[in-house]
């Protein structure tokens, strides 16, 4: 056997009280994962943002209106993962060695069933072939492959960084890597250190302890998908709104 220890289950804890909604995580993610700039015709619904910061409002009028920002990427569901079972050709897989929900764009044939299945809207279909301004393709990250139109892609906790960390460990003759050796781009780029990342299987890790904090919540917890992305907030209204999902109906018709 190659592994004689419990496999890590990577997870993320995001402190929404610290998030300023600056968008660093979104652009750092795009840089890291070779996500191209938007096609001129792309919209909020056809653009590709593996990490997307959404605004959650308390629903009160000005000036009592308050909001927090929720950076939502793939929630890396641990159980009943909605997208894994639906893919007809195994392009989506739960990676038992890291707990990451893998999306393999070269296997995918773009049926978009997984996009439909994901309640977190974390999956993105490539409506266009990727185009970078001339020369900018030199800035692509060699640890991540570029994708073509017609396939689905999503956050994989910057798996290229995990592979690089594993290769470095292998060069040093190690089979395991420490939490600090592997941090996704969003966590690294967060200027307020709102994004914590680490191994949820290790009870002593930063994320394990934070995930058990009383401020912690997850999105759509009752669906039973056991997301590995947690959020922290001290504000009661945030918890209240997250629990009562359908209450946003009054927001009305959206095209965004």
């Amino acid at each position: 056997m190659e592994t004689n220890h419990t496999s890590p289950r990577y997870g993320m804890v995001i402190d929404v009280d610290r998030c300023t909604g600056c968008g660093n995580c979104m652009v750092a993610c795009a840089v890291e994962n070779n996500v191209p700039p938007a096609d001129p015709k792309a919209t909020e619904r056809t653009g590709t943002t593996w990490m997307r910061v959404s605004k959650l409002e308390n629903g009160l009028p000005f000036p009592e209106n308050r909001s927090v920002y929720l950076p939502v990427s793939c929630q890396q569901c641990d159980h009943h993962t909605p997208c894994v079972s639906v893919c007809p050709q195994n392009a989506v897989e739960y990676d038992t060695e890291s707990g990451i929900v893998a999306q393999i764009p070269v296997r995918c044939f773009g049926c978009r069933y997984c996009v439909t299945a994901c309640p977190y809207h974390a999956r993105y279909y490539n409506w266009w072939d990727p185009v970078w301004p001339e020369g900018m393709e030199k800035t692509l990250n060699p640890d991540v492959s570029t994708r073509m139109r017609g396939v689905v892609e999503k956050c994989n906790f910057c798996h290229g960084r995990l592979q690089a960390a594993r290769a470095k460990a292998a060069a040093e003759g190690r089979r395991t890597i420490a939490d600090a050796e592997y941090v996704p781009a969003c966590g690294e780029s967060c200027p307020t250190h709102a994004i914590h990342f680490g191994n949820l299987s290790d009870p002593n890790s930063d994320v394990s302890m934070l995930s058990k904090d009383k401020r912690a919540f997850r999105l759509l917890e009752e669906l039973g998908t056991e997301p590995k992305v947690y959020f922290l907030s001290e504000q009661d209204w945030v918890h209240a709104i997250v629990k009562n999902k359908i209450s946003t109906e009054l927001k009305g018709h959206g095209n965004g």
């Binding site: 893919c87 007809p88 050709q89 995918c108 069933y113 490539n126 017609g150 396939v151």
Partner: peptide, 19 residues
């Protein structure tokens, strides 16, 4: 999106998938 890869469903099928 990628009709030329449609045969993957027959070669690498996911038996749990309704599709």
């Amino acid at each position: 999106g990628q009709p030329l890869r449609a045969w993957f469903t027959f070669w690498h099928p996911n038996v749990h998938s309704m599709l």
